[in-house]
Amino acid sequence: MASYLVTGSSRGLGLALVSRLASLPSAQVGKIIATARQDNSPQLTELVNTSSGRVELVKLDVTNKSSIQEAAKLVEGKLQGKGLDYLINNAGLMDWSSTGLEGMDNLNDIFHTNVTSVHNVTQAFLPLLRKGEKKVVINISTTLGSFAKAEVYRQSPTPAYKISKAALNMLTVQYAQQYEAEGFTLLAISPGWLRTDLGSARADLPVETGAEKVLDIVQQTGPHQNGKFLNIHVPGWENASGNNQYDGEEVAW
């Protein structure tokens, strides 16, 4: 029974990931720690209340180091001496600048949430991950952070988001290299363009599909994929027209 912690669980992909995990057999998925900055999400509250104790909510503001440290202590208690198997760094922000770089006035805020906070959370939970059997850390990224695909997404007016996710991918590689000898697996995964508040109703895929396909990768991964940047696989989307294809392959950096 593997244990999971998901950041940014109050809505969007984070909420869908927790919901999907809770739907899987308890023999496969044990304790699910859903973290969120606020505890006022009705959907997440309902998940917690109907999970027979499998899903537990921990307050965690990923941008606040004191909140991260306090959450790590609470999670340690909830795991009752056991380690954490999977950490999914999902919390993130996206900018929107209609004038591109000239209008980009929030790079520090976006970078802090999407990169620095991922480092701070991972760092704080390393002791629990070391005690876990799986030792897997997943960083939710995007193909918009790929240098190789920069031309494809030239028109997307989200410069700070692109910059921060490119940096997140390198952070993932740095962690993968440093902790490889300890049996860790660090992955960046692009979940696709999903119909969430962040992705909009015009997006390609329902958020539930993104969550399912992300977890397909997560639950099959291991040290052989350490440091990789992977795309989800959605049958029928492998060679789709347009900017986005979901072929399950490694994303070109």
Rank of each mutant, 00 (worst) to 15 (best):
A2N: 10
Q80S: 12
T35N: 04
L101N: 13
N169K: 11
W96Y: 15
A167G: 10
R37G: 06
S3D: 07
N244E: 12
I110T: 13
L13T: 01
S3Y: 09
S67K: 03
D61Y: 01
Q245Y: 05
D85P: 01
Q219F: 13
L13V: 05
V62T: 10
K131C: 01
G192F: 01
G83L: 06
A188Y: 02
E249D: 14
G192H: 07
K134Y: 13
S156N: 12
W193A: 01
T142I: 07
Q177R: 15
D61E: 12
V152Y: 00
W193P: 03
P191M: 07
Y153W: 10
G183F: 02
R11K: 15
A240V: 09
V118R: 00
F229H: 00
L74P: 03
A201R: 14
P159L: 06
P235K: 07
S97K: 14
Q174S: 14
N244K: 11
T122E: 05
N106Y: 07
L129F: 09
L60W: 04
N120S: 13
S156G: 06
N89P: 05
G227S: 12
E212G: 08
S3P: 10
L101W: 15
R202D: 13
Q245E: 10
G227K: 01
A148F: 14
L21P: 00
G53E: 07
K59F: 11
V173K: 13
A27V: 08
L168T: 03
K65A: 11
